[in-house]
């Protein structure tokens, strides 16, 4: 097997993304919206971190958030698509409680192994490869991070052709169904399920 070329991978992903997303309607509106969302997020973080509400500190915060938002205008939300952003935020909010429950379950499982008298007797480590239907970058990252946090598995690699390599601590046949369910939930959260 040849090593994966990172250059090739990122261009592939970009092509897939461009193919799946509709072309922007008005570039100026999109840019303005993208700038506005970044500015609001950064300003919120400023207010939370400074904790001072007088005019002097707020204007300093507004100036620096505007500057950083302008520098990183094509970095945070390049599409500036408010509808998609709001929908995926709602999806993530619905996904998080289920994820937390799964995290607690899998943590208790690993905790029991860690405190067992002979941990090596209880574990069956394996490396597994699976294909995923997810296309966008953010859903893939969410899925990979969720795999790491939940059922006794760690993501090793997400390669071109959407092959995900996983290291499973305690491999059982039920793992596949659990990961498939997680994948469909991530797809639903980001509106990718067809």
């Amino acid at each position: 097997m040849k090593p994966i070329d990172l250059e090739e991978l990122s261009t592939n992903r970009r092509e897939i993304l461009q193919a799946t997303q509709p072309p922007p309607k008005n570039p100026y509106v999109q840019k303005g919206l993208s700038l506005g969302i970044s500015f609001l997020l950064l300003f919120g973080a400023w207010v939370l971190l400074s904790g001072k509400f007088d005019a002097f500190h707020l204007s300093l915060g507004a100036a620096s958030s505007l500057f950083v938002a302008w520098i990183s205008r094509d970095l945070l939300f390049p599409s500036g698509d408010v509808a998609t952003l709001a929908r995926s935020m709602a999806g993530v909010a619905a996904y998080t409680p289920w994820l937390l429950l799964q995290i607690v379950k899998s943590n208790i499982h690993v905790l029991r192994i860690a405190f067992a008298r002979n941990p090596e007797r209880l574990i069956h480590p394996h490396i597994i490869s699976m294909h995923t239907k997810l296309k966008g970058e953010i859903p893939l990252v969410t899925f990979a991070n969720s795999i790491t946090l939940t059922p006794g598995t760690i993501t090793i690699q997400v390669s071109a052709g959407n092959e995900v390599r996983i290291h499973a601590l305690d491999y059982t046949t039920g793992d596949m169904d659990a990961l498939r369910e997680m994948e469909s939930r991530v797809a639903r959260a980001f509106g990718e399920s067809d």
């Binding site: 090593p3 394996h126 490396i127 597994i128 490869s129 699976m130 294909h131 596949m176």
Partner: peptide, 10 residues
């Protein structure tokens, strides 16, 4: 050596 997966799911 290359680390290869032992189990494949489609």
């Amino acid at each position: 050596e290359e680390i290869t997966p032992r189990i494949h799911w489609d």
